[in-house]
Design a protein around this nucleic acid. Sequence first.
DNA 1: AGTGAACTCT
DNA 2: CATGAGAGTTCACTT
Length: 887
Amino acid sequence: MADKKKLLLIDGHSVAFRAFYGLHSQLERMKNRNGLHTNALYGFHNMLEVIVNKEQPTHALVAFDAGKTTFRHEYFDDYKGGRSKMPSEFSEQIPFMKDLLKGFGLQSYQLENYEADDIIGTLAKEAEENGFEVVILTGDRDLTQLASDAIRVDITKKGVSDLKEHTKQSIQEEMGIDPIQIIDMKGLAGDASDNIPGVTKIGDKTALKLLHEYGSVENLYENIEAMKKSKRKEYLINEKETAFLSKKLATIDTNAPIEVKLDNLTYSGLSMEDLISFYKEMDFNSHLQKLDTSEYMEQLAEDAVEVEYTFLNELSSSHFSSNMAMYIEMLNENYHHAEIVSIAWGNDESIYVTDPQTAFASDAFKAWIEDEDSSKVLYDAKRTYVALNNKGMTLKGITFDIMLASYLLTAEDSSSGDIVDVARKHNYDHITPDEVVYGKGKKIKVPEDSALMHDHMARKVLGIYHLSDSMDKQLKENEQEDLLKEMELPLAIVLADMEIQGITVDAERLERMKEEFGTTLESIEERIYEEAGETFNINSPKQLGVILFEKMGYPVIKKTKTGYSTAQDVLEKLKDEAPIVEHILQYRQIAKIQSTYIEGLLKVIDPQTSKIHTRYLQTVARTGRLSSVDPNLQNIPVRLEEGRKIRQAFIPREKGWKIFASDYSQIELRILAHISEDDHLIKAFLDDEDIHTTTAMRVFDIDTPEKVTSDMRREAKAVNFGIVYGISDYGLSQNLNITRKEAKDYIDTYFDRFPGVKEFIDTVIREAKENGFVETLFHRRRYLPDINSRNFNLRSFAERTAMNTPIQGSAADILKMAMIEMAKRMKEENLEATMLLQVHDELIFEVPEHEMDKLESLVKEVMEKTVELSVPLKVESSAGDNWYQAK
DNA sequence: AGTGAACTCT
DNA sequence: CATGAGAGTTCACTT
């Protein structure tokens, strides 16, 4: 049997409007690259997706209201009066609705002088008469009057793609009336949202009661004489006209003179091409990625430019020239262990693809890779360098890296690591996402048809080659060329060498610690179960919350989205009355050490060499800092003794060598002094004063350093931190456990005593508002789209970013410069010592005893002098048999 | 497979 | 109105 015909009717405007408010909290975050708000479009999209998938309609139409007046205004001037004007954030999205609908393959329709409701009503009835099943999607309750055996009305609920279905039956159950009587109800009770007046003192409840008795407005008035004398009766009689008018206004016209024919509304599904271009226009990247891969492939096949390439089984020097892009494919993120599956290179004249065996057996390939004068344009130079290093080659002649360039141009979310995202952001659309070619998750593999991969490789190479040109120009415009070529690119190689070198870790020592901590953990566990009176999973905040706040009845201090907060600062406050929390805190501390640092590190030690090779991510932190993964060696415990012991396991690669660490003292405050030119701050550093003590003296009005108590210094330190991070009185008060007013006084006094700092903050925020971005000392940029937002939170956040980024980012710049210089000098001086780690303001080396003095003076000179500010930079160094001792 | 809470660092 | 910058990993829990 042929499927029944099903018509889907959508009330475009009301659904979009609901979507807008449903995602209103996301308003400022959801913008495309041109700053267009996209929340209503996004929500509307999701609703369409849900309903189209669920209903599988054979016919569909989206109806819109037309113009400002409808026939209803002829009866009643103030119809829909009192509605506030559409916010511009919503109205700016309306023009793009048509692109969205096009993508879904949906027709839309509007009719002069009629509302969408009337179009929907007319078509719904017509369809019903022709044996259709009808589903109406709307954000407006008005349409429920249309519900019948064949017509269902779905209303969007607050949750974005959640729908409430209204059928004839459900309305009868809920209200005790037929859907058509809803208009009688409105006649009596009115509808505030449409400014339909109704009869005085009659609301929904009373109206329903009257309808149960009389059935309709007409019948009510025919029998009104018999009604018992009452105030209500008077109102009804006096406002008879209003009641009939209201009913008329509320009645959907099911005989609108529409020109569309049902037969022309057949629905044939998504239009991939249009949908993809809509996603691109809106920067709906997650949707782009989600698209069914085969459809995506088809689409690409249709509109993609052909990329020509040659697959080579044998290489010769004629295949290489001086200016080429290259890409090496590995299917594992961690390039230290990943297998190379394909290699491609070329330029706009020719592109070559080969397999790794062929490349690595070729002298011509090695000669080209190692030729300083053959310039190579890459995506992720560090990754490429490490991969080739594993094959015994040293990559030379790197002139450009589009990943690094993209990071410098638009540091925003370039994190995913996929070349497609970078390319797309710079309007290059001819690269397929890796996921499509290789699959994702556990199922990642080289495609059966290896030609698919070769084509993919060729596209990447061509993309890299093209993009390097336009990116180079943009960098020049931003004065960022040096930042790439003198900082990030050379740094990539320095980092690669550090990663390849790795740091030696004493696995046996970790194993012994694991035993010890394991025993401790068990005994704490037991004690907690005893105190709680039952066993439970201490690691589960949910279960812990139930024990503490329900079973044991301790006061709830803070809540999270999902339940009770059991965070450290909350538990600290319960310490006095609840002995159990002491043990919980202790448990958590040790459990963290055990799982993350002992077991976690043991897992990543190379059993052959006893080394750990982290990966530094150069394009993640928005301030220009590095981050470290697999494992993260930038957050090895130091603050508390138990955790700090982990550092004993980090040792030099040779017996008798030392671990040597140098860190910048107060680099961020020194940079603040330099940028702000605050006289007092500058003087403090010129005189090499203890900066927290100096701050305490100025803020607390103390005349000599000796009179500054340790508490005052501690509070001053917190204030200094606050200044660097962009302070709020609330934040400082939380931090110091003082009142908000006291915190505010501290801050005001600070700004009064360091006026240059105050001026810096005002200036940097003002400039950020004008330019839309802030810069570090070396022209690293960070765009702040929210800096002029009307949303207080977003704006405040952007303002704090505006003051913090130049400070944190300049510190990152300086250490990067120092690292490059350090690597160069160590090579020149032929030192055996090796740079191993970078932890934001410190560098860690391993060094033979006899080079200690040399290294110490070299590090000091390089770190203090590579970049010179208006205040001195100060470096503190220490050494020991392991990382624990070197601090 | 993805999210949130908790913890670690500068 | 919610509340100090920048990161990564582990676990529990949900989809």
